[in-house]
Amino acid sequence: MSAIYTLITGASSGIGRSIAIELSSSKNLIIHGRNLAKLEETKKMCLNSNRHLIWLHDLENIEEIASSLQIFLKESHIFVEVFIHCAGIAVAIPMKSSNLTISMKMMNINFFSATEIISTLLKKKINFCNLINIIFISSIWSNYGSIAHAVYSASKSALDGLMRSLAVELAPLIRVNSILPGAINTPMAEQCLADPEINAKFKQDYPLGLGKAEDIANAVVFLMSEKSRWLTGQQIIVDGGRTINMSLK
């Protein structure tokens, strides 16, 4: 069996799970998350289930990410070729009611975990220069504003800032890009979509309707393919036309 793997963080549900399923026929996967039962579910839904591995780690535990990943790779005798950062949380809270605990949790899981993982994967002693592709699952809120999502937006903006500089720093061997999804029908968005008012507004705002997790997985497949070989440092917006919709009603 090949020792070359694709690492997907946040693969226990939603977009991460969909990406895992989509890639499972052609890649060896490291399916990451913090809930073993859900990760086992994802693994079962994948093709070639036996060849995929589970890395269990809570990314909120930021200081132990590097050592946990290093030990996991060493014990499994594998290397990472593609890193897809899908893990993320969104806490809707107005700035006035926010606090450092909530902000740090979002920044750690959405942003700092990516820097810790990439820093680990770039070390020759650990990953032997196998990394060639980094894909961040960002958000359209990286570039735009939204009430009660200031820190979440900032965490995604930080991710995209990191993406651009890394694309320059790591070229020509490693390509780095972000995908910016709009509203996707996932467990994370379920709470929002259950509100009839928000649901109706979403339907009005999205010219192509709400997206599916598979729509994002398809963009990942493109960014991993040779067809995107000259593409780096870019935000790929996949949002059903949400951000170009200037309709007055």
Binding site: S97, P196, I198
Partner: peptide
């Protein structure tokens, strides 16, 4: 106001692990 409502929703989610909506 509408921001206070969002703060209340966040507080209820954090304290009681219950999702409620503005509506």
């Amino acid at each position: 106001d509408s921001l206070a409502v969002l703060s209340v929703i966040a507080m209820i989610d954090a304290e009681y692990q219950i999702s409620i909506h503005s509506s």
